[in-house]
Design a protein around this nucleic acid. Sequence first.
DNA 1: TCTGGGGTCCTAGGACCC
DNA 2: TCTGGGGTCCTAGGACCC
Length: 393
Amino acid sequence: MSRVIFHIDVNSAFLSWTAVKMLGEGAQDIRLVPSVVSGDPDDRRSIITAASIPAKKLGIKTAQPVSMALRKCPDLIIVGGDWQWYKKCSRGFISICRSYSPVLQQFSIDECFIDMSGHCTRDDAVTVATRLKDEVKEKLGFTVNVGIGSNKLLAKMASDFEKPDKVHTLWENEIEEKMWPLGVRDLLWVGRKTEELLNAYGINTIGQLASVGIGPLTQLVGKKFAMQLHENANGRDDSPVETVRGEAKSYSAERTFSKDLTDPKDIDRALFNVACIVAHRIRRDLFRASTVSVFVKYKDFRVVQKQCAMAQPTDVTAVILNEARRMLDDAWDGVTPIRQVGLGVSKLTHDNIRQLSLFEDENMEYYRQWDRNYDEEKAKSEDARMLAYEEED
DNA sequence: TCTGGGGTCCTAGGACCC
DNA sequence: TCTGGGGTCCTAGGACCC
């Protein structure tokens, strides 16, 4: 049976959302001038999260360092992000999409797929998609692109065509004309490394990739990835629109320093901070973790990672931090300057069985109380920020 | 020019078991 | 003492996504 899938993508999401918020505060519309959103506008090491179309026309792209963008456009407007506001915008956007079809898969904060099979036909798909996009614009004040196809891959490729505020189709009979002339990099799952590899073998367009046999492709990228690339380049994808989001498999947090650090005290302070954040998140989601990992990134971007399995799963900050400290000692020579430090947990479980251990740290109850205090403070400050936006409604 | 932060999945090698 | 082969788990590293 043939399906009708929409992929809906907010145009320059963080920038559009920030623009809507600033318009409400009486500011100019930053979408109409060269502007960007970045993590910390005052930090030269931060990178661009979203750029306006006028900024993109000057060669400013997402993921570029702010310092580089400033060279291209000295009077660039740089604004910081506001996560609570973005979540509110995202909820409004998803809720409108869901009213068109309950079979919805949220792909990220600003993208989703909906399965429109049964809600519209191929013939009126563009009309319905146009109505959806106009409804978002009218009710929420920002624009989206809608891509339409018979599967998720084609829909997603289609939404990436000309922006903003557009509806595009990519049906099977349009693949040759609309998709095959594109460079391989435009295909989902082909990043910089794979592009370089394919180019080195004379495979430059998606059409060329589509005609390469599985055998030669397997030699290049391995069997699993070869199968995926071959199917996708030919426009095939039978994955369903998944309405239930799977549970998280890992949590992590990292900090990049404004200057590379060598003082163990500074590095330990950062490790402490990320441990608090990660442990708080797993407690919030009622998880315990069995594996802790720590990583450092050096000046030259070389990354060293250590991971270890714990005797029993835990959600206690102090326990996680101690493992991380031990591994960091192992990973870092104590001399080489460090750019970034991170901590992650995985092997998550909801089990709440605490095995009695003869060697349980006698301070454990103190640690748990410390965590409860931390969680309370965190909840209070988050409620306060959220409330600021809820009151506007 | 000099590169954030948060995730997922895959691969390869070694340990260990049968 | 030396040998095959399969399965699983662990760790390290690397690719990709937004």
